Computed example of a mutant assay.
Amino acid sequence: MAIPHALPGQAVDVRPLGAGLAQEKTRALFKSADLEVMRLVLMAGKSLPPHSVPGEITVHCLEGSLVVTAEGRSHALGADQLLYLAGGVMHDVTAVEDSSALVTIALRR
């Protein structure tokens, strides 16, 4: 079964998940030829291993607390903070607290 994605012109709720956070999983909200947006869900102490993507990305912490390490620097993100990374930058993400974030990826063709 395909994962449902938002259609052009369709509103998507990206409010913090609050009490429902622990029951959610990371999922793509939409993907087009040039852009992908996903909600990242990480529980405290969990992390994404070092990786990179070809296009620029933003990580907008919606709730909780994350640390993004890129180019030898750690960036602490709390709720309502956003981090921009250039394309191709190796980075990892660790949840300090149960967290969700909106991740935007500019796709390179």
Results as ranks from 00 to 15, higher is better:
residue 9 G to L: 02
residue 9 G to Q: 01
residue 14 V to D: 10
residue 14 V to G: 05
residue 15 R to S: 15
residue 17 L to K: 09
residue 18 G to F: 01
residue 20 G to W: 00
residue 20 G to N: 13
residue 23 Q to P: 01
residue 26 T to H: 09
residue 27 R to F: 07
residue 27 R to L: 12
residue 30 F to D: 03
residue 34 D to K: 13
residue 34 D to W: 06
residue 37 V to K: 12
residue 38 M to F: 09
residue 41 V to H: 00
residue 44 A to E: 03
residue 44 A to V: 00
residue 45 G to I: 00
residue 47 S to C: 08
residue 47 S to Y: 08
residue 47 S to H: 12
residue 48 L to E: 10
residue 48 L to H: 08
residue 50 P to F: 11
residue 51 H to W: 07
residue 51 H to Y: 09
residue 53 V to C: 10
residue 54 P to H: 07
residue 58 T to K: 13
residue 60 H to T: 15
residue 61 C to R: 08
residue 63 E to I: 04
residue 63 E to V: 02
residue 67 V to I: 15
residue 67 V to N: 06
residue 69 T to K: 11
residue 70 A to M: 10
residue 71 E to Q: 12
residue 73 R to Y: 03
residue 73 R to L: 11
residue 74 S to Q: 15
residue 75 H to M: 04
residue 76 A to E: 15
residue 79 A to T: 10
residue 81 Q to I: 08
residue 87 G to Q: 02
residue 88 G to S: 06
residue 89 V to Y: 05
residue 91 H to L: 06
residue 94 T to M: 14
residue 94 T to R: 15
residue 95 A to W: 03
residue 95 A to N: 04
residue 95 A to R: 02
residue 96 V to A: 00
residue 97 E to H: 09
residue 99 S to P: 05
residue 99 S to F: 02
residue 100 S to Q: 07
residue 100 S to W: 00
residue 101 A to H: 03
residue 101 A to K: 07
residue 103 V to T: 02
residue 103 V to C: 02
residue 104 T to S: 15
residue 106 A to Q: 11
residue 107 L to D: 03
residue 108 R to S: 11
